[in-house]
Simulated assay, not measured.
Amino acid sequence: MVNGAPAGGPTTGGRRQRETAMSGWFRLTLGLLAVVVGAVWTVQGLGYVEGSVMTGQRIWAILGPALVLVGLALLWLGIRARSQR
């Protein structure tokens, strides 16, 4: 401790807040991307989007909603990280 400042220095708390904010944005971005891609995979797997190798393939109708759920979890974590600033 120097002059009443913690050993990590006066900027340690600020750096931690920036890292939390950045990880929040990163999670939000990945979450949104996962939701969009998962939704596209779902409609392709169900046969609503034509002209793709994935059209009408049951596996994409299963993986799509799973990816949407992962994306929603990432969105929730990102919002939570952003609100803790």
Rank of each mutant, 00 (worst) to 15 (best):
M1H: 12
M1C: 07
N3R: 15
N3L: 13
N3E: 08
N3V: 02
N3I: 00
G4K: 04
G4L: 07
A5S: 11
P6V: 04
P6L: 09
A7E: 15
G8D: 09
G8H: 02
G9M: 04
P10L: 14
P10T: 11
P10W: 06
T11A: 14
T12H: 09
T12L: 13
G13S: 14
G13K: 12
G14Q: 09
G14K: 11
R15I: 13
R15N: 10
R16Y: 08
R16E: 10
R16M: 14
Q17M: 11
Q17I: 14
Q17V: 15
Q17H: 12
R18T: 15
R18A: 15
E19Q: 14
E19C: 06
M22A: 12
M22T: 08
M22E: 07
M22P: 00
S23Y: 12
S23G: 05
S23E: 13
W25E: 10
F26G: 05
F26Y: 11
R27W: 10
L28V: 03
L28H: 02
L28M: 14
T29V: 10
T29I: 10
G31L: 00
L32A: 13
L33G: 10
A34H: 04
A34N: 07
V35R: 01
V35E: 01
V35Y: 03
V35F: 03
V35W: 04
V36A: 11
V36E: 02
V36L: 14
V37A: 09
V37W: 08
G38F: 00
G38V: 02
G38E: 01
A39L: 10
A39H: 05
A39K: 04
A39N: 03
W41A: 03
W41Q: 05
W41Y: 10
T42V: 07
V43L: 12
V43D: 01
Q44S: 04
Q44M: 13
Q44R: 07
Q44C: 06
G45T: 00
G45A: 02
G47E: 03
Y48G: 05
Y48F: 15
V49F: 12
V49D: 00
E50W: 14
E50H: 12
E50G: 07
G51V: 02
G51L: 06
V53W: 07
M54L: 14
M54E: 06
T55I: 03
T55E: 09
T55Q: 07
G56K: 06
G56Y: 03
Q57F: 08
R58E: 09
R58W: 11
R58F: 13
W60M: 04
I62C: 01
I62P: 00
I62K: 04
L63V: 12
L63H: 08
L63M: 12
A66H: 10
A66C: 07
L67H: 01
L67G: 02
V68C: 04
V68T: 05
V68E: 01
L69K: 04
L69A: 15
L69V: 13
V70E: 03
V70Q: 05
G71K: 00
L72F: 06
A73W: 12
L74Q: 06
L74R: 05
L74G: 00
L74W: 07
L75Q: 01
L75T: 03
L75F: 03
L77W: 09
L77V: 02
G78C: 02
G78F: 01
G78M: 02
R80N: 08
R80G: 06
R80M: 10
A81P: 00
R82Q: 11
Q84T: 10
Q84F: 07
Q84K: 15
Q84H: 08
R85E: 10
R85T: 07
R85K: 12
R85G: 11
